[in-house]
Computed example of a mutant assay.
Amino acid sequence: MNYIANENRYDTMIYRRCGKTGLKLPAVSLGLWHNFGGVDDYDNAKAMVTRAFDLGITHFDLANNYGPPAGSAEETLGKILQTELKDYRDELIISTKAGYGMWPGPYGDFGSRKYLIASLDQSLKRLGVDYVDVFYSHRPDPETSIEETMMALDSIVRQGKALYVGLSNYDALQTSQALEVLKDLKTPIVLHQPAYSMLNRWVEHGLLDVNERAGIGTIIFQPLAQGVLTDRYLQGIPSDSRAASESVFLNEQDINDKRVNMVVQLNNIAKNRGQSLAQLAISWALRDERVTSALIGASRVAQIEDNVKALNHLSFSEEELTEIEAILQQNS
């Protein structure tokens, strides 16, 4: 049976403009970093993407190396686009990136013109689309000039392979330098994608200001701090959790008694607000209107449904913000 999108999908989702640009994004976007690779269950991936769209999530975020294996998350979304979302392409924002290691040799990593353009050509084939809506430089390259990397992004737009460009993991100074080049080129940059959460607040020390002055949006990843800011760790470390695994992104050192105590205190605030801890963390990250969208990850449909409910209660009282800040400072 062919998928038919929920006719009410736009009724409750909040859409925020990317700075002063013409592009709007849903306040919650879906990232395909984990659980959409070739080793994962395709039917579950399809169910998550279509349910997300039914909830008004129009933005799906990828990178060339998402999987595993690398490239397979793009292939998964490409299949879903062809079989389920073919009639809805113009309602979607599809983004991908290049900047981390993708293939052997000197031309498959970082930020050279050679790598970025070749990588996007591969991504378009895997996705089965003529263009992506946003193409990012995934990280700055210490050995390639910012001018070369930004000129490659400009070429990609002029070739019709992307509508907009973005930056990810650039610090405030690097972002300022990149934006200066892109402004001279008149390249349509719309977004910066950094990590940001209650436990990782580096963007508050300059980057958000840079993005605001430039008139671009900020879309954050890891708002739940790799699952730490959920009810997953309220009782310590479950044996089947990411922290207990061999994950390079989260381990037992990240979940200590001090952090568990903090999570418990934050969970109490969430309960008083009628939210889950995950919903509180997403609402908190979106409290600053300069944050355009929060990228969530998911392993099942229920997580997406739960996370989107954060939008039902985005406002905070001054007392709540003060209490949250005290908890975070106490455990910093």
Rank of each mutant, 00 (worst) to 15 (best):
R201A: 03
L191T: 09
E147H: 13
E74S: 03
L92Y: 13
N307D: 15
Y170W: 01
Q265P: 03
D43E: 15
D141A: 04
G22E: 15
E91P: 02
D254C: 08
S123H: 08
L311S: 10
S123F: 08
Q82V: 03
L30S: 06
F110P: 02
L250S: 07
I146S: 01
A5K: 10
S95V: 09
E180C: 00
D133L: 03
A285E: 02
L314D: 04
Y164K: 01
R273W: 03
Q330V: 01
E143S: 08
V210W: 00
N8A: 13
N169H: 06
P223I: 01
R16I: 05
R201V: 03
Y164Q: 01
L30I: 12
L199A: 09
G111A: 04
A244G: 09
L277V: 08
Q174H: 02
S29N: 03
I4T: 14
V228C: 12
V190G: 03
A162N: 06
Q330H: 13
G31F: 10
T230G: 10
Q177M: 01
D11H: 11
L321V: 09
T12C: 11
P104G: 12
I219Q: 15
D240N: 15
Q226R: 14
I327R: 11
N268S: 13
S123E: 10
I4V: 15
I216P: 00
I327V: 14
L153V: 00
I324G: 03
T230I: 04
V157S: 04
Q82E: 11
V210I: 00
K161G: 11
E323Y: 05
V129F: 05
Q235I: 06
I14P: 07
I255S: 08
N312C: 05
G38I: 09
E252R: 15
S197K: 10
Q303T: 09
D209M: 02
E318A: 14
Y100S: 13
D288Y: 00
R290W: 00
K258F: 07
H192R: 01
N251M: 07
A27W: 05
A73P: 05
Q303N: 08
K271D: 13
L62Q: 04
F110H: 15
R158S: 11
F36G: 09
L199D: 06
R242C: 10
K183Q: 02
E147Y: 08
L295T: 05
G297P: 04
F110D: 13
L23V: 15
I237W: 02
P106Y: 12
V28G: 04
D109H: 14
D87Q: 07
I93S: 05
G217D: 00
A243D: 12
Y233L: 04
A5I: 07
L266S: 10
G67D: 10
D121P: 08
N35L: 07
S283Q: 00
L25E: 02
L120C: 10
Q253K: 15
S155N: 14
E323N: 13
K20W: 00
Q122C: 13
M262F: 03
S112G: 10
G274P: 01
P104C: 12
Q122R: 14
S276P: 01
Q279A: 01
A294F: 07
S299D: 12
M150A: 13
L266Y: 05
D141K: 06
A278D: 04
D41M: 06
G166S: 00
G297M: 07
G108Y: 13
W202V: 12
W202E: 14
S29G: 13
I237R: 04
V132E: 08
K97L: 11
M13P: 02
R126N: 12
H192V: 06
P238F: 12
